[in-house]
Design a protein around this nucleic acid. Structure first.
Lengths: 154, 154
DNA sequence: ATCATTTGTAACAAGATAGGTTACGTGTCT
DNA sequence: AGACACGTAACCTATCTTGTTACAAATGAT
């Protein structure tokens, strides 16, 4: 497995949804992400449960934003997808008996905690609207050149 | 498998080796770590190639430190084991075409780079001797209570 | 010289987790 | 009733660390 890309993917999708006229189906979103509809539903279920998006079943259904992008931080989404582990490194056992191992894990843990605190602080500070604004600066036309078909249709 | 624990394990081992009279065999070390000798040799190969430990084959052989613990930082060991990925999250594709996705990855990447820089800075600052000193403060007797049999014998 | 000891390494299995796929159930609009 | 779209379970795939087995090569003891 590679790295967990759910946070990145969800941010990507939410910005597209904000620029979308109507509800986006899981199928439409899956094409944007280069995956399939079940993965989209699975991942977005957390966002729905946390109140950031709404889903409607049946004919004409799909996904829509439940609040403005300036009301959602990156941390909110990280939390909504279940706060997956941030670091790929760590101790080998949870509660080592060996005191040397404890000292190692404590020292390493301190450094990791510091880095984690900094990262979470950044995630808390940045709203998805901030990213959308970055995009607008890159592409003043205001529309993504890749997903236009999906975004314009359906 | 969960998180990569090679850095933690190697730090643990190096401190024990520093307190060891003679060369430690892979077998001895593997018992300290709760793993087996091949895993030890595999992981310590990087440390040997980087010059932090020496290994001797044959009868009476084993592993020994090649320099003092105050001359080895946590970053040195992180580097010696091959600089494995630090973060478990990241973008889904390396070079996305979609400009929205690029904006997302750029913003997220900035936050991750900041956290990574902080973490690596910490790893560079801390020597293994610093951890050993922490251990000595916890256990003034100076000997680990767990691995005493292995450390004392062989 | 022979044998036990120990590292060096290749090859493959196990375990964990995100992601991909198939299948089917349920709700909703036409 | 039928088409559409989400909800979800079940299973497979890919990837990476770790674990295991097997064997070659080096070294010291007898």
């Amino acid at each position: 497995m590679r790295r967990d890309s759910r946070l990145s993917r969800m941010l990507h999708v939410l910005i597209h949804m904000d620029r979308h006229y109507k509800r986006a189906t899981s199928e439409t979103i899956s094409k944007m992400l280069g995956t399939n509809a079940v993965v989209v539903r699975r991942t977005m279920a957390g966002l729905r449960d946390s109140g950031y998006v709404r889903s409607e079943q049946g004919h004409g259904g799909g996904w829509e934003l439940a609040r403005g992008l300036d009301q959602i931080t990156l941390f909110d989404i990280y939390e909504a997808i279940g706060k997956p582990p941030l670091f790929a490194i760590g101790p080998s056992v949870d509660q080592p008996e060996c005191l040397v191992e404890q000292a190692v894990d404590a020292k390493l843990g301190d450094a990791l905690k510091e880095a984690e605190a900094l990262l979470l602080e950044r995630l808390r500070t940045i709203t998805i609207a901030d990213i959308a604004a970055d995009f607008d600066r890159r592409m003043p036309e205001g529309r993504c050149n890749i997903h236009t078909e999906q975004s314009a249709s359906a």
